[in-house]
């Protein structure tokens, strides 16, 4: 591999992180598309316990076939996909969380320090100019990565799971307080839709950042675990990154 500047391959991601990342990606893709299939059966959102058909909170969609699973209208099949992959998402997430707590990945790599938090403004300015940390600074997730990943791990995914459970009439009987947390079952359905939209927004920004900050290097690090960083003065040779 002829490289003009000296590069160092560091171990970026643990095996658990890599495997659960791709399983999670598959789950979220299937859940999003089968979720849109289910949504298309009644493409309206409400607030409260019941559907105020004449006065919905929002009328959205229906979503086109390329966005749904299956691509044609078939609620029964959408539900099959959704409820199978929901289990996979939960099991995969539990494995990741447990392993990350034990290995201290969460506290060590994802929890920003006070000093890192103080640099949020600067980090945003640099990201907007598509300037990313290089060299020694690239050994750690930067503060925006930390905040984005934490938002997904501790806010969006738990929220989408809990609001999803609120859709189940039997769980609503088992835990009557569950839909009440969100102001009723239809509110929970709306929050479920918003949380899923948040995950989609994360996915779009995530992929854009992966592309902008060195696609192959990032992709390799999430497959083999190895991530190349510049050595020496830490200045970026961005054309090659």
């Amino acid at each position: 591999m002829p490289q003009p500047s000296p590069k160092l391959l560091i171990r970026r991601h643990s095996a658990v992180t890599r495997v659960t990342h791709w399983v999670n990606a598959l789950c979220l893709a299937v859940l999003l598309m089968s979720g849109l299939q289910i949504f298309n059966a009644h493409p309206a959102l409400y607030w409260g316990n019941i559907s105020t058909f004449d006065n919905p909170l929002a009328l959205i969609g229906p979503f086109p076939g390329w966005a749904t699973l299956p691509s044609y209208q078939d609620l029964a099949s959408g539900r099959l996909w959704h409820f199978f992959f929901a289990w996979l998402l939960v099991i995969n997430g539990a494995v990741y969380l447990l392993a990350s707590l034990v290995s201290r990945h969460l506290s060590r790599d994802l929890l920003p320090t006070r000093a890192e938090l103080a640099h949020v403004g600067q980090a945003i300015r640099e990201h907007i100019r598509l300037r990313f940390p290089q060299g020694e600074e690239a050994r750690r997730y930067n503060v925006l990565q930390q905040l984005a990943y934490l938002a997904v791990i501790v806010v969006l995914v738990p929220l989408v799971i809990v609001t999803g459970l609120c859709m189940s009439p039997r769980l609503n009987a088992d835990f009557q307080w569950l839909p009440a947390l969100f102001g009723g079952r239809q509110s929970a359905r709306t929050v479920h839709f918003l949380a899923a939209s948040g995950l989609l927004a994360f996915f779009i920004v995530h992929v854009a950042m992966v592309l902008a900050s060195g696609f192959w290097n990032n992709l390799r690090s999430m497959i083999t675990g190895r991530y190349a960083i510049e050595t020496g003065d830490g200045h970026a040779d961005r054309a090659k990154s």
């Binding site: 289910i38 949504f39 059966a41 009644h42 309206a44 409400y46 316990n49 019941i50 559907s51 058909f53 609620l75 539900r79 859709m167 009439p169 609503n172 079952r185 239809q186 359905r189």
Partner: peptide, 12 residues
């Protein structure tokens, strides 16, 4: 009681 349709809507 609340009637939850498989389509996603609810009525009481």
């Amino acid at each position: 009681t609340r009637h939850d349709c498989v389509e996603g809507w609810s009525c009481i």
